[in-house]
Design a protein around this nucleic acid. Structure first.
Lengths: 225, 225
DNA sequence: TCATAGACTAAACAGCTGTTCAACCGGGAT
DNA sequence: ATCCCGGTTGAACAGCTGTTTAGTCTATGA
């Protein structure tokens, strides 16, 4: 399912080299010359194929987005989600560049990042709806906000991977890579919170509910913007 | 508690301008000339005071770190945590530069980011321990990992603020700023998960536990690194 | 066989980058 | 009154940046 062979178009080779460098170094740090060198090509050719560095970025965005879109399809059922995860755990370094690129795209403001995040939220929302019907997931008043919270929590290990494996002492594949060890160590604590909760009772929830209620009734917003 | 007056050392003015620009534009994009202009000063003077652009970054790191350290002290009890939050909600734009800077520092690999993340984890751990003793927080087998998960979840809204307010339609203060509206909308869903859980029963938790158990006993790591 | 188009390169270009340097200014110490 | 030193500036520097240009090579179609 992956074009790891060396028989790629020069254009594709440049694009892949750029995805790797943009993800690893960031868009600004990764120079056109570095991309060209990584692809074994002259700097001029990069511009020749993509018009400009921004054009190259756009092409990378589109490619990574398309790649993840095909992977993300039909993973609304927990079955294939687990399969996808198992797939990643067995060949983590194959997705490394892509993941690093997505991380960067989520951080810098870009339309590709917006699209990706929205897709994740949408899929999470679908999963929650399906889970509620199946009885495996609790009924939430505000499914959309809940999905956003869950998506945000899930993506945090993508964004903070470096710090997570650093403080937990697990071996990370790269500066910001997420190793199998890390996922293994975080799975149970996260699932424990997601099944039994974090607090022992609804004290905090009730307090917050009261505070927000009071905030609403007391003549609207008191926090000037 | 804040030196918003104009009677600052030139050095401090440059530093503050740099914190703002580094947070807003990132370290690479923010040029020495831009910092100098923002501080109303010549580029040469910036170097004169901080030796180099990296020296300036170091000074910014130290300053922000010290600033947040004094704020983070003695907030292990929920009382002052709420106070801190209320303080932020009433004057969000005052902390804007600092928050944007911390966001950047967490993302780029830097020792300051490491220190900050570790501090957050440490404080979360303290809170959990205290909560367990007080009976408000569930007893967790692995408090450290749990603290890492909670900290990661919490920081995700700092890192993804832009996307959160974008998809939720709340008004954000800046590209990546976190507005009061956003916090208000996320509080209840997050607390609901934290008190009642996300799943209805321990099916997923048990399955994961079994899978990990089996993974351990089956001759060690099967995922080559 | 020749012409043409596109892939590709080496060199050069202008602009911006961090940094240096010589000079200047103002005020406190001698 | 003089010295002097830190804060400050403007101009300059070398290096790197994205991009352009002129030109070479190679395959393909007429």
């Amino acid at each position: 399912m992956r074009s790891n062979a060396e028989d790629l178009t020069t254009r594709a080779r440049i694009r892949d080299a750029a995805i790797g460098l943009f993800g690893r170094e960031g868009f600004v740090r990764a120079t056109v010359r570095a991309v060209a060198a990584a692809a074994g090509v002259s700097p001029g050719l990069v511009i020749h194929h993509f018009g400009s560095k921004d054009g190259l970025r756009y092409a990378c965005d589109q490619h990574v987005l398309a790649q993840t879109a095909t992977q993300g399809r039909e993973k609304s059922d927990p079955e294939s989600t687990g399969q996808l995860l198992r797939d990643y755990l067995n060949h983590p370094d194959q997705y490394l560049d892509e993941i690093a690129y997505i991380r960067r795209v989520l951080i810098d403001e870009s339309e590709a990042g917006d699209a990706f995040f929205d897709a994740v939220v949408r899929q999470t929302q679908d999963i929650i709806h399906a889970g509620i019907e199946a009885g495996t997931i609790r009924k939430f008043d505000d499914v959309r906000s809940t999905a956003v919270v869950i998506a945000s929590n899930s993506l945090s290990i993508l964004l903070l991977g470096r710090h997570l494996s650093r403080t937990l002492g697990t071996v990370g594949l790269e500066p910001h890579g997420i190793g199998p060890d890390l996922l293994r160590q975080l799975t149970l604590p996260a699932l424990e919170i997601y099944t039994h909760g974090f607090y022992t009772d609804s004290r905090f929830l009730d307090a917050a509910r009261d505070a927000l209620q009071q905030d609403n009734t007391s003549g609207g917003r008191e926090h000037a913007l």
